[in-house]
């Protein structure tokens, strides 16, 4: 135990790497592999031919046996490597008879050769199936799901930014009776997760006639205590004298908000925008309840429905999984510094 603690409590700046350094790097490397491998596996699998995807043992890369046309044979034949008298030759397999494989040399289609099946192995080449991606978009509803997800994410993010920044402006740049109470009320909604009020929230959406409607997914999400908190903390750093100067400059309160305060809050707005896009893109339980007809499904709900319906179509499921993962990954690659800084600063996800 104490050796683990020793390792854990090491501080930096010793001479040369010692055991604890090796252990640290081992931990990080193994961790990185554990993070990367399942995703990488799904990614390469999503490119495999439907016939290859369920093969066991699997090949890591998307490969498929080579098929060739040989003169005199109607259907295409698989290309195999055969060992004959110490030589390795590439032959096409016609049929198997017991432990014998009847093969033909593509260069010389007239003559058949019998080889023991133990001496042959299939020739494989890299084979990518883009249809895994194009088919679901064309044949199934995925293009609609994608459109719905983009719509929900965009509208929800714009409204989140607008509503939350207005509330944050009121709570940070005005002195009025009830301000602290309002702030506490808004922050207290952090303690009421959706999963607790899901049944009555559903009733409210029914009452608003927004069941099976994308607005029923959007509206409940646009007032976020996290967003109000993050923006308010940022706006508190904007000097009050700027607002007073604008007031003397005859700006209306709304103009103060959008011409003076909002532009100065841009960094915090960007962080909230990133979060909002990721939250709304990934939402599952609430859209699952609100949306009923497949035409209205978001990508996550559609993906879940699809995987329940076509459990064997892993090539499509994985391709659509990758499609759903792509925007978040792009955002992450370009903006991860803002995301991690945003979380470290507010402690809220």
């Amino acid at each position: 135990m104490s050796s683990i603690v020793n390792f854990l409590s090491r501080t930096r700046g010793k001479n040369g790497p010692d055991l604890t350094d090796w252990l640290s790097w081992f931990w990080l490397l193994v961790g990185t592999l554990i993070v990367a491998i399942p995703i990488a596996w799904a990614a390469v699998s999503s490119l495999k031919q439907p016939s290859e995807i369920q093969r066991f043992p699997p090949s890591f890369l998307p490969v498929a046996p080579v098929q060739i046309q040989v003169e005199g044979y109607d259907s295409s034949l698989g290309l195999w490597e055969a060992e004959i008298d110490g030589d390795t030759r590439e032959l096409a397999l016609i049929r198997r008879i017991g432990i014998q494989a009847q093969m033909v040399d593509p260069e010389n289609p007239g003559e058949t050769i019998n080889v023991p099946t133990s001496a042959i192995s299939p020739v494989e080449s890299l084979s990518i199936a883009p249809t895994n991606y194009t088919d679901p978009l064309e044949r199934f509803n995925f293009l609609t799901y994608l459109k719905n997800s983009v719509f929900v994410t965009t509208m929800a993010t714009i409204l989140t930014l607008l509503l939350n920044s207005m509330a944050a402006f009121a709570l940070s740049k005005y002195k009025f009776r009830g301000r602290n109470a309002m702030f506490i009320i808004i922050i207290s909604t952090l303690m009421i997760p959706l999963s607790v009020v899901i049944v009555p929230a559903f009733l409210v959406v029914v009452g608003l006639n927004m069941i099976d409607n994308l607005w029923g997914v959007i509206l409940p999400t646009i007032a976020t205590p996290t967003g109000v908190f993050l923006l308010r903390q940022y706006m508190l750093t904007i000097p009050d004298e700027l607002i007073e100067a604008a007031r003397i400059d005859a700006a209306s309160e709304f103009r103060i908000f959008w011409r003076v305060v909002l532009p100065l809050t841009a960094p915090a707005l960007a962080v909230l925008a990133i979060f909002s896009v990721i939250w709304r893109w990934n939402d599952f339980l609430w859209p699952l309840i609100v949306l009923i007809r497949p035409d209205n499904f978001t990508l996550q709900v559609g993906l879940n429905a699809f995987q329940g319906q076509f459990t064997t179509q892993w090539h499509y499921i994985l391709a659509m999984t990758m499609l759903s993962l792509a925007p978040v990954t792009v955002i992450f690659v370009f903006l991860q510094r803002y995301i991690t800084a945003g979380i470290a600063n507010t402690g809220i996800k």
Binding site: E241, L242, R247, D249, A251
Partner: peptide, 16 residues
């Protein structure tokens, strides 16, 4: 403030 037709110079200047 706007209706009073006054102008004010602040300690921090309060430039936008």
């Amino acid at each position: 403030p706007a209706q009073r037709r006054i102008a004010m110079v602040f300690q921090s200047y309060a430039l936008y």
